[in-house]
């Protein structure tokens, strides 16, 4: 190969080649099953062991049935409430800890140990956590009840897990507690990627830690925050393990999430695969719309920056080519 042929065009094919494994795995293990699910949503497939199905005369019948289903509506509401109650404190705490751990002026001791420990709740399985929290909030005897009575907060035992709002609150708390460590790790990674020159400049200008955080760190974290927001939104909309294992959607459907609803449609007795599939697709569309909104809201500046970056990259490649020549 002569140096003349080392043009960017000749490398472009590697962009395709290196993407092939991802695309193939996606097509086989995700796209095909989704397609299958989507098709089922338009059919009469229900009941056990059935493989033959026919398309419904009204193709949207299942979608309508799910959309108008009071339990589905409630599950959407619950999912939204639980996600918001978990995500807002989660991102706030993660940001606060990020600010503390990346503060160059006031270094905390044992930072490393804290970072490592904060991720740990994520290691333990959801089933274990469900059992432990069930016992913690036991009624009429249980550690939390004992504590409340000891501290004089309550006169008698409280049935936490039968109250709709405490049940939702506890699930939000579990989600918050399991995930803030991971969010913090990702956010710290984002902060470390900010150009140090920005911080140095701020230092020279005499900015306080607070000013640095709000005027440099936060705006620079936009992309990473978007990533966190979107992944957490998707994770939150799919929330299944804890609501299912902890209270099985109860009390009185207060912790019934969309995923638990889908599971119940398919497996709690009637094998309504078609309705479950329709609910899956509705969930997908909702997530796509919400994510789209997030992308749109946080979009403009990024797009500009991206273009600029692409220009820089092209420039660098040109320079490299020139250097080669």
């Amino acid at each position: 190969m002569g140096p003349k042929k080392l043009k960017s065009v000749s490398y472009a094919k590697y962009g395709y080649i290196f993407s092939i494994p991802f695309v193939l795995a996606f097509l086989i293990f995700t796209a095909y099953p989704i397609f299958y699910t989507a098709v089922i949503g338009f059919t009469d497939l229900k009941g056990l062991g059935k493989t033959d199905f026919k398309f419904l005369e009204n193709p949207l019948q299942n979608f309508e049935a799910v959309w108008k289903n009071p339990s589905f509506q409630k599950s959407l509401e619950n999912t939204a409430i639980i996600w918001i109650c978990n995500f807002i404190p989660q991102i706030l705490l993660a940001l606060l800890l990020t600010a503390w751990f990346t503060n160059q002026r006031q270094k905390l001791r044992c930072q490393g140990a804290f970072k490592v420990l904060f991720y740990m709740p994520n290691i333990i399985t959801a089933a274990t956590i469900a059992i432990l929290f069930n016992s913690l909030f036991g009624y009429p005897l249980g550690p939390v009840n004992d504590l409340f009575q000891m501290l004089g907060i309550a006169d008698g035992p409280t049935e936490f897990l039968r109250d709709k709002w405490t049940a939702k609150g506890i699930i939000s708390f579990i989600q918050f507690w399991m995930w803030y460590g991971q969010t913090m790790i990702v956010l710290i990674a984002g902060v470390l990627g900010i150009n140090p020159a920005l911080f140095e400049a701020a230092e020279i200008d005499g900015a306080t830690s607070r000013q640095v955080f709000f005027h440099i760190t936060l705006p620079s974290l936009r992309t990473i925050m978007l990533f966190t927001l979107v992944t957490s939104l998707i994770g939150g909309m799919q929330m299944f393990d804890i609501p299912k294992l902890f209270l099985n959607g109860g009390p009185d459907s207060a912790t019934l999430t969309v995923s638990v609803f889908i599971y119940n449609q398919a497996f709690s007795g009637s094998y309504l695969y078609n309705r479950a599939a329709a609910a899956c697709m509705i969930l997908f569309v909702i997530i796509a719309i919400l994510s789209g909104i997030l992308f749109y809201l946080l979009r403009d500046k990024d797009a500009g920056k991206l273009k600029k970056q692409m220009r820089e990259l092209k420039k660098a490649q040109k320079a490299a080519r020139r250097a080669e020549a």
């Binding site: 996606f26 099953p33 699910t37």
Partner: peptide, 23 residues
Amino acid sequence: FFTFIMAVLMIPAQVSGIGFYQF
């Protein structure tokens, strides 16, 4: 392709679960 990956990111696991298992 990057946009496509971000779209894939939005696909909830349950959506492919039933189909995946039967496949």
